[in-house]
Nucleic acid binder design. Structure first.
Lengths: 209, 209, 209, 209
DNA sequence: AATGAATGAGAGTTCATTCAT
DNA sequence: TATGAATGAACTCTCATTCAT
């Protein structure tokens, strides 16, 4: 019947989602195993059947969350550069915000502490690079676009917004911040590399000759 | 005679600065009251004569950081906007880099770890805001310049670069990164708000033909 | 068909011998039911089908050790008492020494750690008792010999040498120690009970003049 | 007034003696910190103000107990050799027995496990050596007495009795055992080295000439 | 004002045992 | 009979806080 398997899966799910919510809300250090198992309605020992330590849980949670933003750049490649970049970055930040400030703080601690957690950054930069290259391939960005530099600029800006969020908490709206940045400054930044659509081209070519 | 008051003030001071250093080095949760009083050479009970709780000490610490105002923006106010901003941000990053990546990592842990350490950010933004306002006052930036937004943009970018540095270590040059960003993208960002000086105007109008 | 019974018996056996080895190596408290069943390749619940508790297993183990009777005293019964005892004890110690000091240490921990591991001692004493009785039966020891006392004396001396070895390590030669004890003191100890053979008697009476 | 010091000393005493009794009765592993502090009427944290770990307590206990048998050999030097040795060994064993079988087991585990706990053995042997030398100096033992060998023989016998006690528990009387050994076998062992008192000398010298 | 022993709730973790499947 | 997830009491140890001195 699979009754048992069902129950196991259910317990695992509940554990993950409840712990996720609690840690996102209150932060890793503030949430105890006691609180988690109480909220889950399971025994303390059961927790350790699923995760060998409290630290193992947060690792699993982080991996679950930040795997979401991968290979979704295709969706944006057909749009205009400013929109594509803006929407990608906004969506990315939305995922992080949804994970909760607690997890974000945990994530910052995790990746900034010590050695060799460069994978996440590399992949993030690589994703934007890939998006920019698709925009070049589709003809909306010039071939001379400094892809790597722009990708790194975007990511440091985004990481900076995350860090700022973990500092300011409710006094900082990470998604809105990214939206405003993309609206107000991204056009200027991308402008030199954008292949202007016909009418703009015409206007531009006339404005200065 | 203020002798006693002096001693009290001294102890309070020592307590604050030692706790500051310890927390910056090891993180709030990792530093115990025991360790702090041991480092201070006072008894545990004495600690509670000065601060009613460990949390109260942290609050006092934040306030102290708030007060560390070093107004160095005057130096840059007379330059052209792009140069002024670029040099200020570069110098800022240089100071952080000189402190070492270890301290940077601790700083990231410290400010991102809940508990309202917003003072540093506020001060940083306020400093840039002040610089921008001076540039407006000196006539090199338009009055309509979105001061607050530009200040936050700069700081998230800078914080992002710091965070990236703590992640990538030697594979990332924080100062060079800021320099490149200022050279390659800052002009585009500021361009709409810059009051072009006569000779540049002339040069620009001729440059496009 | 005893197929099922065979399997059951096999499992019970495996459980016993594996647990024996593990406990001898790491000590009772340090070995968990989890480790035992893992080593046996059975489920935790299965363990409780064979033994109603961990303590019950230990009891069974003790009983098993009790049964390990190897009657090797016959070999020595035909010799003179001092030689018979000396060779038996020396050979015994040689076996222990060959097993290595590590195993000796574990053995000391094992038998000394509460929980009624008296079987080994009983067997050891019983073996020497049996040897002494054979020596009496063969006429080389007097019937009034305090068999039990001598047996216990020998074994405490031997156990003491083992314990001393585990303490001093390379600075103590357990076999040589036993040999010296048997050469230098055993004659005096046994002397009152030895039925002197004719030629020795003669020699002795002449030796003193 | 010293009220506080008194209380501290009292607490320390209670802790030590109660823990001593509990461990002697039930064994180290079977007694929990919870039980000790409950029996002492103190808080759990207080325990850790006195000892930094449960293991540190047992170390302190062992040291307290086994320090007792030191430099008391003077008392026995004036007696006849068999009596001197017998009383010393008996008294030694009495101290150990009074410490309780739990502590004895703990002691056996401690000294037999791993490296470098040779100090206790060295001192014990040295004590008996010193006693024997005093007996030689007082003229009751021959100068040719194998001091070192006799000392080691005595200690292995005594250690063996301790080990046997930890194995057999209530089925073995360590003090009585040592007493019997000293009564029944020690005379034979020492006989070759004893300087016979006058009348015995006379008898002996006549018996064989 | 300074002390530091006492506190006790609470932390993370272990493990012998149970029981529905 | 075999399974292994679930249990929960018990474990050692921590630490912010209190209070008599």
């Amino acid at each position: 019947m699979g009754k048992r398997e069902d129950k196991i899966h259910q317990t695992r799910s509940r554990l993950l989602s409840i712990a996720d919510r609690m840690i996102a809300e209150h932060g890793y250090e503030e949430v105890s195993v006691d609180q988690i198992v109480a909220a889950c309605g399971i025994a303390k020992g059961t927790f350790y059947n699923y995760y060998e330590s409290k630290a193992a849980l947060i690792t699993a949670l982080s991996q679950q969350h930040f795997r979401q933003v991968t290979d979704i750049t295709d969706t944006y490649a057909s749009k205009a550069p400013v929109e594509a970049m803006g929407q990608y970055l906004t969506e990315y930040m939305q995922v992080i915000k949804d994970a909760g400030i607690g997890l974000a703080r945990q994530w910052v601690r995790y990746i900034s502490s010590a050695a060799g957690n460069t994978g996440k950054w590399d992949q993030d930069v690589s994703n934007i690079t890939s998006l920019l290259e698709k925009l070049i391939a589709s003809g909306s960005l010039k071939k001379a676009t400094p892809v790597q530099e722009l990708a790194e600029l975007s990511m440091t800006q985004l990481y900076g917004a995350v860090l700022t969020w973990t500092i300011l908490g409710e006094n900082f709206q990470p998604v809105k911040n990214i939206q405003h940045v993309c609206r107000d400054f991204l056009p200027s930044v991308l402008e030199p590399y954008v292949v202007a659509p016909p009418y703009v081209k015409a206007f531009k070519s006339h404005s200065c000759s």
